[in-house]
Each structure stands twice: as C-alpha cells, then as structure tokens.
C-alpha cells in the first residue's frame, strides 16, 4: 500500500464501495481492503488538507488520515443505512486530531508566527544559497524583515510538533505503517546490524533513513542534505528531529515489552 499524496486513484461508484465492503467483511481479503483504501484517497487528502498549515507536512497528515480511513474500513458495518464516506469522515478527522494531541501540540501557534514560519522556509533556503553556508538568526531576521526574537519564536513553533514525547509512547503505527523497504544501501545495512535501533530503522521511510545516514554517519550538514535531497533545510531539520523521536519512542516500547 502506498501512502503518498502523489498517487491518483480512481473513485469507485457508491454501489461498488458497498459491494466491496461486504466482500471484505466476508473474505477479509487484503487486496479488497487495499482497493477500498486507495479509492478513498481523495477523501483522505481533502480532510488532511484541512489540518495543513499547523506545522505538519501534508504528506505526514495524509499518512495519519489514511490510518483513520483504514480503521473506518475495518469497522464499517455494510448493513448500516449510512454511506461509507459519511461514516469514515469523523473517524479520519478523529485520527488527525489525535495526532496533533499526541504530539503535545498543546499551544496553538498564532497566525502571525505561522505566516512568518512559512516565509522563513524560503528565506533560509535563499540565504543558504547566497551565502554558501547556513545563515545565522540575525541574517535570517534581516532578510525576512522581522526581529530576531520573532524569527526564534517562529522557528521554535515549527518544531513544536516534532517534539514528540520524550515520555509518550509513540504509537506503534507511527513506525509500522510505513512501507517495509528492501535495502540496497550496503553501508546502511551494515550500520543497522551494529545498532540497537536496527530493526526500527528498517521501518523508517527510505528518505528519512537516508537523511539519518547522511547526517550522522557521513557527517553532511543539514544544508548539504537539503541540497542533495532537493528539499528545504527546515524540512530536513524537522524530519530529522521527528525521526529520532520516533526511534526513541520505539526503543522505549521495546524496552518495556
């Protein structure tokens, strides 16, 4: 099952959805389940977008929403007189809300900071290019026409969500819903074998694994990684913090079991 936003899936007619849901109930077929999930990608993306702009990358929100959809598919009773999408919507929204709650997103980030934060992404990228190095806070503030305090506040707010729990147990889903991927990177494989986090690493999406490898084992800077992967430095920074938090939470789970 692919969980990215880039795939486009055909929507099924309502009758067909009902029929598949019945068949799923009878056969438990993973293929039918996958078809149902894929065919509701539009709904998932629509709902995920409603939660965008709170500091979470849309891709992540879509993954969370897909988990909600999968739960709805599993729980839906085809004999009910209600459309599946009507039933699924609150389940998906619930999953998204829980996601923000679980991440300690206690404080709503003021719009002013959200806007500045959005702007900073491109300011940091542009400055990194111009200066051929990572900019200082002072340089970012000057370029963004904001004060250093405002820049710091906005940057911190962008990290607020990724601070997943030092204490909370990240749900298992957090790691396991990612595709299991075969590794063709020998260095990474050798690395995994040496590490306590090895088994957990294998559950991380390839891009995030690559990032860990480049930053912590190849010694590349976050700016260099951003260039290499063609994404913003802020995104690299967020993803690294988040992935490490997931690994920590995963290790803790293992330790307790």
């Amino acid at each position: 099952m692919r969980l990215t936003s880039h795939d486009r899936h055909p929507q099924l007619p309502k009758d067909e959805v009902k029929r598949l849901l019945r068949e799923l109930r009878e056969t438990g077929s993973p293929a039918i389940r996958a078809t149902l999930i894929e065919s509701h990608h539009g709904l998932v993306e629509y709902l995920a977008r409603r939660f965008a702009g709170r500091g979470e990358p849309l891709d992540d929100l879509i993954q969370v929403a897909t988990i909600g959809l999968a739960k709805a598919v599993d729980r839906f009773d085809p004999d009910r007189e209600v459309e599946f999408s009507t039933y699924a919507t609150p389940t998906i929204v619930g999953e998204l809300k829980r996601h923000f709650r679980d991440k300690g997103w206690a404080v709503r980030v003021p719009r002013r900071l959200q806007e500045l934060n959005l702007r900073l992404g491109s300011v940091v990228s542009q400055l990194s290019q111009d200066l051929q190095r990572s900019p200082t806070i002072g340089e970012i503030a000057a370029a963004a026409g904001a004060s250093e305090d405002e820049v710091l506040e906005a940057l911190d707010s962008s990290h607020a969500y990724s601070l997943i729990s030092l204490d909370a147990t990240q749900s298992e889903e957090g790691l396991s819903y990612h595709e299991q991927i075969g590794s063709d990177d020998e260095a990474m494989e050798a690395l995994e074998d040496r590490l306590s986090v090895g088994p957990l690493l294998r559950k991380i999406p390839p891009r995030e694994r690559r990032m860990l490898h480049l930053r912590f084992f190849k010694g590349m800077t976050q700016s260099e990684i951003a260039q290499e992967l063609g994404i913003s430095q802020m995104h690299v920074s967020r993803l690294l913090a988040k992935t490490l938090a997931q690994l920590r939470a995963g290790l803790e789970d293992e330790g307790e079991s």
């Binding site: 190095r133 990572s134 900019p135 940057l155 601070l163 690294l240 913090a241 490490l244 938090a245």
Partner: peptide, 15 residues
C-alpha cells in the same frame, strides 16, 4: 551567532 544548521543540531542533541 550560531547558524541555523547548528541551532537545529543543538536541538537534536538536547533531545
């Protein structure tokens, strides 16, 4: 006057 890269690293280390 740490750079943005270093501040991000600092956060990772604290975490």
């Amino acid at each position: 006057d740490f750079t943005y890269d270093q501040i991000s690293d600092l956060h990772l280390a604290i975490d």
